[in-house]
Design a protein around this nucleic acid. Structure first.
Lengths: 115, 115
DNA sequence: GTCATATGTAACCATGTGGTTTTATGATCA
DNA sequence: TGATCATAAAACCACATGGTTACATATGAC
């Protein structure tokens, strides 16, 4: 595929899939928001949500694979931190659509101007 | 949930889930791109992809439910058209994260300035 | 060393997803 | 009217997802 999307951003379709997939869950979006403003451990995060540690761990794995968060172990903890770069790539993708849309408007305007 | 997200955009978590979920598939992103620049029928779209009409129809249903495209019947066809408004909402959500991130930077800067 | 805490990981389960094929319905055109 | 084309909708399938519980392993505190 790679027609309207990732071309400009050196992201494969697969990577783009993973990014949007990861964003498609409220808990994961919340984790992104929190770790973007403040680094956090898994269990700190797990306390905030009504689900098991294991469930939160899985969400973090999904976010890691989408590169929307970075993690590193520090002692017995794993610290999680939001990764703004990859978020900006997602944003840039949506901007691509906006550009397409504007081009369409411009073409319609041009057509109208001809008459 | 609705903490870091939808609050500003009168979208429920569920709606946001649907939007990002719908964006998490290359075929669907391609359909958005095409129908944003040019209205199209389902079978016109189906010719472009190596999958059945039924599969494409399902993708369009997903996009409709996320309100990323609008559809209307015209004779025996169903015309599909990209919906830029909802795409912009998705974009606005990502902008929210950027704002959070910038606030964090500002806070860190402030801390450094204190010392 | 012992114990508590944080994490990792596996097995399991219900449900959702992305595809298929098949069959039915509806609209257009000759 | 009949043939054809666009769509709709259902049944089915393999696999992914989002959760669980249970158990193993690491690390820090004492």
């Amino acid at each position: 595929m790679v027609t309207y999307d990732a071309a400009q951003l050196d992201l494969t379709d697969d990577q783009v899939d993973r990014i949007f997939r990861a964003l498609a869950d409220a808990t994961r979006r919340d984790i992104i928001g929190r770790t973007l403003t403040e680094e956090s451990s898994i269990s700190e995060l797990a306390h905030r949500y009504e689900m098991s540690f294991a469930a939160v761990r899985k969400h973090i794995t999904v976010l890691e694979e989408a590169q929307l968060v970075c993690t590193h172990r520090s002692g017995r903890e794993r610290r999680i931190r939001g990764n703004p770069e990859h978020l900006q790539k997602a944003q840039a993708l949506l901007t691509t659509y906006e550009r397409l849309w504007r081009e369409r408007i411009d073409r319609l305007d041009a057509l109208l101007a001809e008459d």
